[in-house]
Amino acid sequence: MKEKLPRLPIATRLRNDFLAGLIICAPVAITLWLTWSVVRWADSWVKPYLPARYDPDNYLNFAVPGSGLLIALVAITLIGFLGKNLIGQSIVQFSESLVRRVPLVRSIYQSVKQIFETVLKDKTNSFKKVGLIEYPSPGLWALVFISTDAKGEIATKFKAMGQDMVCVFLPPTPVPTAGFLIFTPREKIVPLDMSPEDAAKLLISGGLVTPEELAGRMKKQERTRKPLPAPIEM
Results as ranks from 00 to 15, higher is better:
Pro136Ala: 12
Gly152Met: 04
Cys167Gln: 11
Ala178Ile: 06
Pro174Arg: 01
Pro191Asp: 05
Pro172Ile: 14
Val166Gly: 03
Tyr135Leu: 10
Phe127Ile: 08
Leu120Asn: 15
Met161Gln: 15
Lys121Gln: 15
Gly179Cys: 06
Asp164Arg: 05
Lys113Ser: 15
Trp141Glu: 15
Gln163Cys: 10
Val144Ala: 08
Thr124Lys: 13
Pro136Phe: 09
Met194Lys: 03
Val190Asp: 01
Lys123Thr: 12
Phe180Ile: 01
Asp198Arg: 00
Asn125Pro: 12
Leu202His: 11
Ile189Asp: 07
Leu170Tyr: 14
Ala178His: 06
Pro171Asp: 02
Ile133Gln: 11
Lys151Asn: 14
Leu208Val: 12
Pro185Gly: 11
Arg186Cys: 10
Thr156Ala: 09
Ser137Asp: 09
Asp164Asn: 12
Lys151Gly: 11
Gly131Ile: 02
Tyr135Thr: 11
Ile115Tyr: 06
Val119Gly: 04
Lys121His: 14
Ser147Gly: 08
Gly162Ala: 12
Glu197Phe: 07
Asp164Thr: 08
Glu153Ser: 08
Lys129Val: 02
Leu143Phe: 07
Ser195Glu: 09
Phe180Val: 00
Thr173Lys: 03
Met194Thr: 06
Val175Leu: 12
Trp141Asn: 14
Ala178Tyr: 04
Ser147Pro: 01
Met194Gln: 07
Lys123Tyr: 10
Glu187Leu: 14
Ala160Asp: 12
Glu117Met: 07
Met161Gly: 10
Ile182Trp: 08
Pro176Ser: 03
Leu181Tyr: 07
Ala150Thr: 11
Asp193Glu: 13
Met194Pro: 03
Lys123Leu: 10
Ile204Asn: 00
Ala155Gln: 03
Lys159Asn: 09
Lys128Asn: 09
Val166Lys: 09
Ser147Val: 05
Val168His: 05
Thr184Glu: 15
Gly139Ile: 09
Ala200Asp: 02
Ile133Phe: 09
Phe180Cys: 00
Ala178Trp: 02
Lys201Met: 09
Val119His: 06
Gln163Ser: 14
Lys188Asp: 13
Ser205Pro: 01
Leu170Pro: 09
Lys201Ser: 08
Glu153Thr: 05
Asp198Glu: 14
Pro136Ile: 10
Lys151Asp: 14
Glu197Val: 08
Gly207Ile: 00
Val168Lys: 06
Gly139Asn: 10
Asp193Pro: 03
Pro172Met: 13
Thr184His: 12
Phe158Asp: 04
Lys129Glu: 12
Leu208Cys: 08
Leu202Cys: 04
Gly131Asn: 05
Met165Thr: 02
Pro172Glu: 15
Pro176Leu: 06
Val166Tyr: 04
Lys159Tyr: 05
Arg186Thr: 11
Thr124Trp: 10
Ala155Cys: 04
Leu120Lys: 12
Lys151Trp: 13
Ser205Gln: 05
Asp149Ser: 13
Leu203Thr: 05
Leu203Tyr: 00
Asp193Ala: 12
Leu132Arg: 14
Val190Thr: 11
Phe183Gly: 02
Asp198His: 04
